[in-house]
Simulated assay, not measured.
Amino acid sequence: MSKVYRPYQPEQSELLPPSPREWLPEEHLAYFILDTVKEMDLKVLLEKYERELRGYPPYHPRMLVGLLLYGYCVGVASSRRLERKTYEDVAFRIIAAGQHPDHTAIAEFRRRHLKELSGLFVQVLALCQKAGLVKLGHVALDGPKLKANASKHKAMSYERMQQREQELTQKVGERMKAEEEADGAEDRLYGKKKRGDELPQELRRAESRLKKIRQAKAELEAEAQAARQAQ
């Protein structure tokens, strides 16, 4: 009697595709980011695109903002890593709604809207802190809290609020700089148009890949046989 295993068919498609909302628990950070970005005023970004009526339809700024913001929160810095995450990571796939902007599009969006993105990210962090969060992914938001209901504390509270906004602005600025530096380093390492993890041409398609794998396997077996005969 042979061992019975649970069904495993990687090539089998699902008859009814699941909703992305079923892929992660309801309290996942990705959904919080989606809801937060939905409430953000992106007029300053959208107006730039409204003036450009020609050309191929761009990715929606709201999607790219969500992608960059989620990446910021979970420590994914470079645009190449963000591109890979839209294929490999469920949370990123949900935020990107199944789209896969390449690293050049992500890097260009960040470069073009750096000032606006920095301001938006500071707003998000301040909003999250006000909502009671002490941490957003890997980003610490907690800090000394002062009561603002008594008159003697109002000036101190306002001063602390200004200080905290400066701290958040500095934090976002440092992160944006690190992301640009990561992109620059990877551009020099891999070449501007390449991700750096591409398979050789003959291994990219299923038919030629299987042929190459079988050929390599046969060669290894032949080498092993030759080594045994030489002993």
Rank of each mutant, 00 (worst) to 15 (best):
M1L: 09
S2M: 10
V4F: 07
P7I: 08
Q9P: 07
Q9K: 02
E11S: 07
L15S: 14
S19I: 03
P20K: 01
E22I: 03
E27K: 09
I33T: 11
L34E: 15
D35F: 00
K38V: 08
E39N: 10
M40A: 09
K43E: 11
R51N: 04
E52I: 15
H60L: 12
P61V: 08
M63E: 13
L64T: 09
L68Q: 05
G71R: 03
S79H: 09
K85V: 04
Y87H: 14
Y87N: 08
Y87T: 12
D89Y: 01
F92A: 08
R93L: 09
R93W: 08
A96L: 02
G98C: 05
G98F: 01
T104S: 11
A105N: 04
E108S: 11
H113K: 10
K115W: 03
K115V: 05
S118I: 11
Q123K: 14
K130S: 15
A131V: 04
K135Q: 12
G137V: 03
L141M: 10
D142Q: 13
K147V: 11
K147Y: 06
A150S: 13
H153M: 11
A155T: 15
E159A: 10
R160S: 13
Q163C: 14
Q166T: 13
L168E: 08
K171M: 10
V172K: 08
E174P: 06
K177M: 02
A178P: 00
A182D: 03
A182W: 01
L189Y: 10
K193V: 05
P200R: 06
E202A: 05
L203V: 01
R205D: 02
A206G: 01
R209D: 00
K211I: 06
I213L: 10
I213F: 02
A216P: 11
A227S: 13
A227C: 09
A227Q: 09
Q229H: 04
A230V: 05
